[in-house]
Simulated scan of single mutants.
Amino acid sequence: MRDIVDDLLRVWHSGRTGGLATVVRTVGSGPLDVGSAILVDANGVAYGSVLGGAVESAVREAALAAARTGRRAMHRFGVPAAEAGNDAGGMIDVFAEPFSRRDFPEFPTVASEIANNHRVTIFTVVWNPDGDLIGQHLVTDKRHATELVALPESDVFVCSFAPPPRLIIFGANAIAAALTTQARLLGYRVTICDSRDDLDSVDAFAGAEVVVDWPHRYLNTLAAAGEIDASTAVVVLSDDPKFEIPLLTVALRLPALAYLGATGTLAAHHRRMEDLRAGGFGDATMARLHSPAGFDVGARTATEHAVAIAAELLAARSGRSVPAVRPDVIRAEQVFGARASIAL
């Protein structure tokens, strides 16, 4: 539902009634996420998506019927194998309800909490023997999985919106600008930190929060405020030792981050690793550092480097096995030693 929050808010403010159909349960239906939703406004225009094809058409019709009749109901749709993305196909349960100021008076609060990167959870009664209770909503800030919960006399769909994962980029340059665009497409909240107080143009980093501070000091401040967690990603784009070594020293002393990467040449990589070893870090700790950051895809331009980093970031987020140090770097160190491999 997160992708149609602005559309929902627009329908809410229009004073008219739309229809909202939400996938509340899936069985063998491939990559479809529970919580995926389609909104149909009072003019019949649809927003959002589920699977496409015939199933999406059926879900859209359920939303449209809810808008026109005011009825709240559960629907079950079979999902053909071709649309499910697997051989067996499956089925989905969809809850369709009218959507308006009258039907969901609390929705602006939900939209505001999401926009401000706060946690918000919506409990919706999707079945109850008392029909008047179906469609009732409760909004809280409690952590909960997004799922359909079966209670003795009710079925309740819980839709939870966690704050988006955070990416902190240290170094305001062309790669940072391109990586901001890539990361926001992946759903990250982006912050760029640079020590220069004369940044050429903040406009180059549209959609990102820009902070002027010394990198290690800013990361320490965030950590002390409890704003760094296991979903936080950090990318260091300056390989100047006076900036990156104090910063990486702070980062490597934090509990494990979702991703920690530092860009630079192989020469910069080996100097970086030697400096960190001299600072007392062992191989096990430094294995958390992706250096040089980004998949080796032959990137040359700032945009290409940003794509390479974003790909590695996504792989790390999805739990794919991603070596922190590139295999060619590891082989060079094993065969020639760290200093000799600088010349490769």
Rank of each mutant, 00 (worst) to 15 (best):
G52A: 15
V50R: 09
A225L: 14
V156N: 00
I4H: 02
T285H: 03
A302I: 05
A251M: 14
C193Y: 05
D194L: 14
V59I: 12
R331G: 02
D141K: 08
A224M: 06
A183L: 10
D275E: 09
I92C: 06
L51N: 03
V126F: 03
K242E: 11
R2P: 00
A268Y: 02
A162F: 09
P255V: 03
G187L: 02
V235M: 04
F205R: 04
G280M: 04
F107H: 08
G131M: 07
N116C: 06
L313M: 12
P98T: 08
G28V: 02
L276Y: 10
D7N: 11
A316N: 05
R189E: 15
A310Y: 12
E244W: 06
R189K: 06
A223K: 02
V297H: 07
T22V: 09
I342N: 01
S291G: 05
L314A: 11
I114L: 11
L20G: 02
V59M: 02
L289G: 00
D197K: 13
E106R: 08
D296Y: 13
L344V: 13
A225D: 09
L138Y: 12
R72H: 05
S14G: 02
E106L: 12
I192E: 10
L8M: 15
M1L: 04
V156H: 00
S160I: 01
V27H: 11
I228F: 09
D229S: 05
L276Q: 05
L186N: 01
L151R: 13
T191C: 03
F243Q: 03
D198E: 14
P241F: 12
G171P: 00
R102H: 05
A284W: 07
L185P: 00
L260M: 02
M91E: 13
A340T: 11
R317I: 12
D93R: 07
G28N: 14
T285L: 12
I330M: 13
V94G: 03
G261D: 04
D33I: 10
R271G: 02
L138Q: 14
P165L: 14
R272N: 04
A145T: 05
T140K: 01
L276T: 08
T303Y: 09
L9A: 10
P327T: 14
D130Q: 10
L199M: 07
I122Q: 01
A340D: 09
A251F: 14
I309M: 10
V24D: 01
V45W: 13
T22L: 12
G264M: 11
F295R: 09
P129G: 02
Y188N: 01
L314M: 15
S36Q: 08
T121G: 06
S195E: 09
D229I: 06
V45T: 13
A46W: 15
R320Q: 09
L252P: 04
Q334K: 09
P80L: 15
D198W: 10
R10V: 15
H144N: 07
A311C: 14
I175D: 04
E274T: 11
P255S: 00
H13R: 12
L199W: 11
V94M: 06
